[in-house]
Design a protein around this nucleic acid. Sequence first.
DNA 1: CGCGGCTTTGATGTTCATCAAGTAAAGTGG
DNA 2: CCACTTTACTTGATGAACATCAAAGCCGCG
Lengths: 231, 231
Amino acid sequence: MNPENSKCSCEQCKLKSLFFSHVTVNELTDICEIKEERSYSKGELIIKEGEKINDFLYMKEGLVKLSKTSFDGKDQIISFSKPFDFVSLLSIFSSENFRYSVTAVEDSVVCILDLEIVKNYARENALFTMDLMIRVSEVTDKIILDNLEIKRKHLKGRVAHVLLYFSEYIYNSDEFDLPVSRREIAEYIGMTTENVIRTLSEFRKDKIIKIFGKDILIVNKKRLEGISEFG
Amino acid sequence: MNPENSKCSCEQCKLKSLFFSHVTVNELTDICEIKEERSYSKGELIIKEGEKINDFLYMKEGLVKLSKTSFDGKDQIISFSKPFDFVSLLSIFSSENFRYSVTAVEDSVVCILDLEIVKNYARENALFTMDLMIRVSEVTDKIILDNLEIKRKHLKGRVAHVLLYFSEYIYNSDEFDLPVSRREIAEYIGMTTENVIRTLSEFRKDKIIKIFGKDILIVNKKRLEGISEFG
DNA sequence: CGCGGCTTTGATGTTCATCAAGTAAAGTGG
DNA sequence: CCACTTTACTTGATGAACATCAAAGCCGCG
């Protein structure tokens, strides 16, 4: 009733415009009444592969990984997503159950809506649905393109690619804290942990990067780009 | 005017229900007025990577490959699609230009609608848009899952996977004509042509398959499934 | 009929996974 | 808070998996 007492802040939410731009103020208020905000700390599981899909999630803050575990217990990382990359959308409309797990790799905040209610809006409001579709399309396109890119490179190119990905796409800085373990990088690029480490060490010896544990500083970006591009 | 004279047969089209189930008969007639049907023979390019997206396409018959050429001229095949797998949808709503090429690997028939008109329907008819989204979601999900599956396997497992894919998913038969060259298989699974050939020869020597040029007969399916699953 | 692309096989070398072993860091229970 | 356990990181040695190079036969097509 009283907006001051409500913890809802959708009206001020920067992400609102992403896919609620075609939802009226009244509808938005309805949605906000039933939304829930949840925080996850680094390492926490947000969605478990196989779970029934009841919620519609979108990320407000943080960084997550999308992954899948194969029958022999090995993980493959499909992609990393920051806010605006709506990970939860991937199988929401094509499956009853989540096909991938989602895990916070940095402290993250997620807004949760009831999926049925979102679907009801989608069935009534075509512009809203259109916005959703554009987002789904963008996210999946990015995943497919990125995977193709990685696939055509060798070990060194793949590691360089990942470093540039975090540097440019996630952190916009030549120095950053790697949010993932060496093992997770390996799971992402489809190589072994040992070889990821060896490659990083090699980059360090060649003075392309500096390493202080998780902290990475890209010293010679041109060179790294060359390795990423040509192997 | 006269339906007998019209080459439009949308009303009878089996694919209609896929995404025109929520379009009224009148609207469907409108759409049919402006649709065009085109045939492509095996090997013909249907969509060229980089082209502006003006059309909305869906496949009525045939088999196509979705591919991307990297700067050094090497092709990577993203997926194969038969009718119901709407390849053209992939970047239609997230990009101005096609990000992939589409080529017929079997004689194919494609229906072409003006994209703007389809988008107009999408902006007005939420259920239609919802249907579209579900399809987009299904297709991209399938691509991502299939690529993950291939990624975690070694050479032999990948070749076995492709053979089973064509046998079970495309042709529903233990014997079939490979619609693609050895090289295209290599481009799909990310290995070299020579090693695809060597692996096929090995399967033949082990009496898992018989090979007569393009014609493949799967003799020992259980064994092939084992190789696909465990390497 | 000859040219180019597809297929096949063999020989060789490179890239990468695996195994092993040790250090550092981080979480756990008394 | 410290001993203990576990997990992450690192390096080296070895062998397996795969790419590359080379050569030859095959087939379709202009």
